[in-house]
């Protein structure tokens, strides 16, 4: 009996060996090569991040050799291409924040209103029409919004604010708000739709009205998704470039007056990129210093949104 068993065992081993030695091996090489290629593809995303950091930092170093970080971060005059030169970035930061705040004031209430309407009130058929129509707004190229701001919104606002220039923070902010509405509404609505129907029914069964269900059950349960959507919209507004380049002006100014002409960080980068600024010059390096600051600002927002997701994520 024992001998029989060993016999058959060795037979099986032999069969396995033969399988490996013929087509099995070639498959292995191809499979291994594929796996390595796929891993490289995935690692490329990390290389991209490294590339961003390296390119921003390496060029900024040249800038910070001539301008102190302290002067850059606290100075209130930004005239890098005019004499007397001055490299205080605060006017650009303030301009960026001003436009961002205006756009968020527009987009958050409207986006939330749309999300609540679609998730709580709208019948399924209507939802299926409205949602993609509003998402068109997010797919329109930003130069188109810039065009809209200076050819229609600004001239209309000038009828109200008669001393306002055609290039101003208000028009740029309003139009940017329109653009980021679907970012707020889509993500918030997804979060609200993910709140189980059983929770909403529980509130209805206690005599809550539709609005009370939305306010006291749906919104609190979907809060992490809602906050994430707002942070991402903010980050998008800070980094948005063409609308502000076209419509907000090119005059860096420490002002929170929305009808003033200002300049944002992104618009400054584009302004200097338009002319072929010579590589290695101080002007050229200035772009990267501003870019580095912009990158850090949006990075903080993104990390914040991921922290919100991981920390506040509710399992119902």
């Amino acid at each position: 009996m024992e001998q029989d068993l060993t016999k058959s065992k060795s037979k099986i081993i032999w069969l396995g060996d033969r399988a490996k030695s013929t087509w099995g091996k070639r498959q292995n090489i191809e499979g291994r090569a594929a796996q390595i290629f796929l891993l490289i593809c995935a690692l490329l995303s990390i290389a991209t991040t490294v590339g961003i950091v390296v390119s921003l930092v390496s060029q900024s170093v040249g800038f910070f050799k001539e301008v102190s970080i302290w002067e850059f971060l606290t100075g209130t005059r930004w005239t890098p291409i005019l004499i007397p030169r001055s490299y205080g970035v605060l006017p650009l930061v303030v301009g960026t924040l001003l436009v961002t705040i205006i756009s968020v004031i527009v987009a958050v209430p409207i986006g939330m209103g749309i999300a609540i309407f679609l998730s709580t009130y709208a019948p399924e058929q209507l939802r299926r029409i409205i949602k993609p129509v509003l998402e068109i707004l997010a797919g329109i190229p930003t130069v188109v919004y810039g065009y809209f701001a200076i050819t229609l919104v600004s001239p209309m606002l000038q009828k109200v604010f008669t001393n306002m220039l055609i290039f101003n923070a208000l028009s740029a902010g309003l139009v940017m708000g329109l653009m980021i509405i679907p970012m707020v509404s889509s993500l918030s609505e997804d979060a609200m739709m993910a709140v189980p129907q059983s929770l909403k029914e529980g509130a209805f069964a206690l005599g809550a009205t539709r609005f009370e269900v939305a306010l006291k059950v749906t919104i609190p349960s979907a809060l992490s998704g809602i906050i994430t959507s707002i942070i991402l919209a903010l980050s998008r507004a800070i980094g948005e470039t063409m609308i502000v380049t076209i419509a907000a002006g090119a005059t860096p100014k420490m002002t929170f007056n929305p009808i003033d002409s200002i300049q944002t960080m992104t618009a400054f980068i584009v302004q200097l990129s338009l002319g072929e600024t010579p590589h290695g010059s101080l002007e050229y390096n200035t772009i990267f210093a501003v870019g580095l600051l912009l990158f850090l600002m949006t990075l903080i927002m993104n990390l914040l949104s991921q922290w919100v997701v991981s920390r506040w994520h509710r399992r119902y």
Partner: peptide, 19 residues
Amino acid sequence: NIANLASVPSIIYGLLGLT
């Protein structure tokens, strides 16, 4: 990292490419 890259402003990519 991919989630972060998705929300880096596009002008920053421009600076990466330029360098």
